[in-house]
């Protein structure tokens, strides 16, 4: 039988175009990076049944099952239904697999579920974000990390969300042991100093990582009731100008971040190059075209930040410019 495959539909359905003729790979999406063991067993079963028995673990916390015959795609879509249900990913039609692949899996570091330094439940926030933005064909990358260690490497994404806590200090519980100062110096930015037996925090320098809280032996330092976030914008990899995301908002709240991401999708729909190859264009290149002010106007529409939030009104990105010169001599 003649093989007649629409590769555009194949990719949109979260199958990979493989260099091996006649084969594909199924791309499983795991928002927030956490999945039940029974779904993992199902993944293994599908890889054994339809694939070549191997599983590729992706950089974005998905898995790809290579070596699947193109003809088996409908059967694979049926087989992975329980995984889609389990991971809570939005779907348009049951047993038809993933409805889009443009907006990438939403990544999360282990966060406060496991990590002593995680400032919030990264998986929960990532899942909430995925619920809002997926399915979508636009090429957008979002990642969540629990603290400024950035184990989630969120500065490589369009939207990077870094957890923060505002250290609360009770001088009446402080004995001046200076462990917060020592560990802030060793493990963080050195924002603390001892003045007259009590600790003073440089609020400009403090990145809200919570190291002082973790090492305080008396609970003189505690975490703020509110979970705060640093939102960093428009990092990317790629062949033109890979770069790290830059700080946009410090001490942001969850709702504002949700609103900003939603607004950003509207901005991209408005300004994306209509001739962009395969409809994919990193947001950063669009911002280069419209200017930051226009981008700012769109993404901050109806966003109600809390009083503590600090916003950068102009951002400059650096990075490697392959597109200018690659001469290392």
């Amino acid at each position: 039988m003649a093989r007649d495959i629409n590769t555009k539909k194949l990719k949109k359905n979260a199958f990979r175009y493989s260099k091996v003729r006649g084969e594909t790979a199924s791309r499983i999406r795991i928002p927030g990076g956490v999945i039940n063991a029974k779904s993992m067993a199902k993944i293994a079963e599908v890889a054994e049944t339809y694939g070549n028995g191997t599983i590729f673990v992706t950089n974005r916390q998905g898995v790809e099952l290579p070596g699947i015959a193109l003809e088996d795609m409908p059967a694979v879509n049926k087989a992975i239904q329980s995984i889609i249900d389990d991971s809570g990913v939005n779907q348009e039609e049951r047993d038809k697999g993933y409805p889009a692949s443009g907006t990438r899996n939403v990544v999360a570091c282990p966060g406060s579920r496991l990590c002593p330094f995680g400032c919030y439940d990264t998986t929960e926030f990532a899942r909430k974000m995925d619920k809002m933005i997926f399915p979508n064909n636009l090429h957008v990358k979002i990642a969540f990390t629990g603290c400024s260690n950035d184990c989630g490497k969120v500065r490589m994404d369009d939207f990077g969300i870094i957890g923060m806590t505002e250290p609360q200090y009770d001088p009446n519980r402080c004995v001046g042991c200076e462990q917060c100062i020592k560990y802030c110096n060793i493990r963080s930015v050195g924002a603390l100093s001892l003045v007259n037996g009590k600790v003073v925090r440089d609020t400009d320098l403090c990145i809200g990582c919570g190291v002082c809280v973790a090492y305080c032996p008396t609970r003189a330092w505690t975490r703020s009731k509110e979970h705060y976030f640093r939102l960093v914008l428009l990092g990317r990899t790629g062949k033109k100008n890979p770069r790290l995301a830059e700080d946009f908002i410090k001490w942001a709240d969850e709702q504002s971040i949700m609103d900003i991401v939603k607004n950003a999708y509207a901005y991209v729909e408005e300004y994306i190059d209509p001739n962009a190859y395969e409809g994919k264009e990193h947001i950063g290149y669009i911002v280069d075209r419209t200017g930051f002010d226009e981008f700012f106007k769109w993404i901050m529409k109806d966003v109600k930040l809390n009083d503590k939030a600090e916003v950068a009104h102009r951002i400059y990105w650096g990075g490697k410019h392959y597109d200018r010169s690659n001469n290392l001599k």
């Binding site: 406060s112 002593p116 995680g118 400032c119 919030y120 439940d121 629990g146 806590t165 919570g210 809280v213 973790a214 305080c216 609970r219 505690t222 975490r223 009731k225 979970h227």
Partner: peptide
């Protein structure tokens, strides 16, 4: 029980 005032995020301390 001091809610959320433990060493780690969303962990209580009893003092």
């Amino acid at each position: 029980r001091k809610v959320g005032e433990g060493r780690y995020t969303d962990v209580d301390v009893v003092r």
